[in-house]
C-alpha cells in the first residue's frame, strides 16, 4: 500500500472566469508534516489553497484528503473532512464578536482545543472577547483567524500568509501557535512570503511559479540552496 497522505493534489487546474490560473499543480503532504508553498505574488499559492477548500468553482484534477476524493465536493463537505482554513484576508466577521467568531465553525470531532485553552494561548483575545471581530488590531485578527480553527478538531490546516504585515513580536506569537499545532501532530500547509519564518518551522518547501509547482526543497537542503531560493522568490 502507498504511504498515507493527509493531502494529495494531482494535476490540479483552476480557473477564475475565463482565466486559467492553476496549470496542473501536484503536491502531497504527509500526516504531521509542515509544508510551505513559496513563490512570488500571483504565482497561484492562494489559489491552490482556495481550490483545496472548494472555494474556486471551476477546478479539475484530483484533490484527496486522507485518501478521499474531494475535487467535486462543496466547501462545507470539504471542511468536514477535518480541514481548518485561515484565509489570507483573515475573514474575521464584523457582525460577530470575538467569542462568536471563535464559536462559529462547528466541531468536526472532540479532538479540538477547549475555548479556555485557546484563550490561554491568546490572552489578547480573551481580553477583547466582547469586541466586534473587526475592531481588533491586525495582529489580533490574525490570532483570531488561527484560534478559530483550533476548536473544531481539524487536523489539516491551510494557513495563508499568517504573518503578512505584522510586527515581529506578533510574528513570534503566531510562530509559537503554529509550533504548538505541529507538536500536537497536526498537518500544516503554509503559504508564506516571509521565508525566514517559513524555513524555521517547515519540513519541506514547494516553489510555485505561474500556476505550476517548479521545485520541491527539503528542509535539510535550504542552507545549501540559498542562492537558488532567493532567485525563486526574487529577493
Amino acid at each position: 500500500m502507498a504511504e498515507a497522505r493527509s493531502l494529495q493534489i494531482e494535476n490540479l487546474h483552476a480557473y477564475y472566469g475565463d482565466s486559467h490560473v492553476l496549470h496542473g499543480v501536484s503536491l502531497d503532504v504527509k500526516p504531521g508534516e509542515v509544508v510551505t508553498i513559496l513563490g512570488r505574488n500571483g504565482a497561484g499559492k492562494t489559489t491552490t489553497l482556495r481550490a483545496v477548500m472548494g472555494l474556486i468553482e471551476r477546478r479539475t484534477g484530483s484533490i484527496r484528503i486522507s485518501g478521499d476524493e474531494v475535487i467535486a465536493a462543496t466547501p462545507e463537505k470539504i471542511a468536514r473532512h477535518g480541514l481548518g482554513y485561515v484565509p489570507e484576508e483573515r475573514g474575521i466577521y464584523a457582525t460577530l464578536d470575538v467569542t462568536e467568531n471563535l464559536l462559529l465553525p462547528p466541531k468536526i470531532n472532540d479532538h479540538g482545543m477547549a475555548l479556555d485553552d485557546i484563550y490561554r494561548l491568546f490572552p489578547n483575545l480573551h481580553e477583547r472577547r466582547r469586541s466586534p471581530g473587526t475592531k481588533l488590531s491586525g495582529g489580533e485578527q490574525q490570532m483570531l483567524a488561527i484560534a478559530r480553527v483550533l476548536r473544531t478538531g481539524a487536523s489539516l490546516f491551510l494557513l495563508d500568509e499568517p504573518t503578512e504585515g505584522l510586527a515581529p513580536v506578533i510574528v513570534q506569537q503566531i510562530g509559537r501557535a503554529i509550533e504548538l499545532m505541529k507538536s500536537q501532530g497536526n498537518t500544516i500547509v503554509l503559504v508564506e512570503q516571509n521565508f525566514r519564518f517559513a524555513s524555521r518551522i517547515a519540513d519541506r518547501h514547494y516553489v510555485m511559479e505561474r500556476g505550476r509547482i517548479i521545485d520541491m526543497i527539503p528542509g535539510a537542503e535550504v542552507a545549501s540552496r540559498q542562492t537558488q531560493i532567493q532567485q525563486y522568490l526574487g529577493i
Binding site: 482554513y85 460577530l96 462559529l104 465553525p105 462547528p106
Partner: peptide, 21 residues
C-alpha cells in the same frame, strides 16, 4: 450567529463546514 456569518461572508462560512445553501 451562523445566520449573521452566512449573511456577511457566505463562501468563507461554507469553508468552515456550515451548510449555507
Amino acid at each position: 450567529r451562523t445566520l449573521r456569518a452566512a449573511t456577511e461572508n457566505p463562501m468563507l462560512t461554507r469553508a468552515f463546514g456550515i451548510n449555507v445553501p
